[in-house]
């Protein structure tokens, strides 16, 4: 699902990963200075619209990814309403000994919406950026040493293998009579029993891969050429400038 979105031939998908990363951090930084609920609402809508128009991501998909997160965002509403630093003056209603003030509800709403902005712009980044493109871009444009970039990418490939391994370990334990046990304590023991063999297997694999890479000269001792060059074009400059102009405007008009 995510992968097919990332591979889609859209304008956002083609933008330089480092530029998109900078925009994401720019959005987070600017939102720290915004304390009303309406600006964030605009930013969430903008992320959805950009994804739809320039990334061919349907609104439905965008909202589907955002939905579980909104539960977390909503928690700010009740936390700020029930445990404010200072109670607001416009009392809406009382709930037992607790007075609910309009100001506090609005603050909660503002911070909940702020969290939604972070999530929606993170989605804009994740849904349009292939992981390997991001790594290559970090190596090519941010001068991340190649041994880090390729080392991490190699280890990232272990994930599906580790999943398979977990199944094997489970089956091996079960055939020796160590079945799934109930209760929190039983679950905890189970996790402990699986974690060590799984991690040990990951380390063994890493060991072998590292030796193979070193024997092929995968260190930073020479100038590297790339099979896949990540581009940095006028469009990227344009995208970055436009987004930062927008963020400056948000900061000015908030």
């Amino acid at each position: 699902m995510l992968e097919s979105l990332q591979r889609h031939d859209g304008w956002l998908q083609e933008r330089n990963p480092v530029v998109k990363l900078l925009v994401l951090f720019g959005v987070i930084a600017v939102m720290l200075f915004v304390n009303d609920p309406w600006t964030p609402l605009f930013m969430v809508g903008l992320a959805g619209l950009l994804l739809r128009l320039l990334g061919a991501v349907p609104f439905k998909t965008f909202l589907m990814y955002l939905a579980p997160f909104s539960l977390f965002a909503l928690s700010f509403l009740w936390i700020h309403t029930f445990f404010p630093g200072e109670r607001g003056e416009t009392v809406l209603f009382t709930l037992g000994p607790m007075t609910i003030a309009r100001e506090n509800v609005m603050t909660g709403l503002a911070f909940g919406m702020r969290a939604m902005v972070f999530a929606s712009w993170s989605l804009l980044f994740i849904m349009t950026t292939e992981p390997s493109k991001l790594m290559l871009s970090l190596i090519q444009h941010l001068r991340l040493p190649a041994r880090y970039g390729y080392g991490i990418m190699a280890a990232y490939r272990f994930l599906p293998i580790l999943q398979e391994e977990l199944r094997t370990i489970r089956a091996a334990h079960r055939i020796r009579g160590l079945g799934e046990s109930g209760g929190i304590r039983g679950k905890w023991n189970e996790i402990k029993r699986y974690a060590i063999p799984l991690l040990a297997g990951a380390i063994r694999k890493a060991d072998r891969v590292a030796i193979a890479m070193e024997s092929k000269g995968f260190d930073d001792s020479r100038d590297r050429v790339f099979y896949r060059e990540i581009r940095f074009t006028v469009h990227d400059v344009l995208y970055g400038l436009l987004m930062f102009a927008l963020l400056a405007a948000v900061l000015y008009f908030k």
């Binding site: 080392g151 280890a155 990232y156 590292a210």
Partner: peptide
Amino acid sequence: IGLYDIVVMAAISIVFGV
């Protein structure tokens, strides 16, 4: 921090990342 350290560290950190 050599390639060997990086790959092993990455393998551990990736398990924890999940």
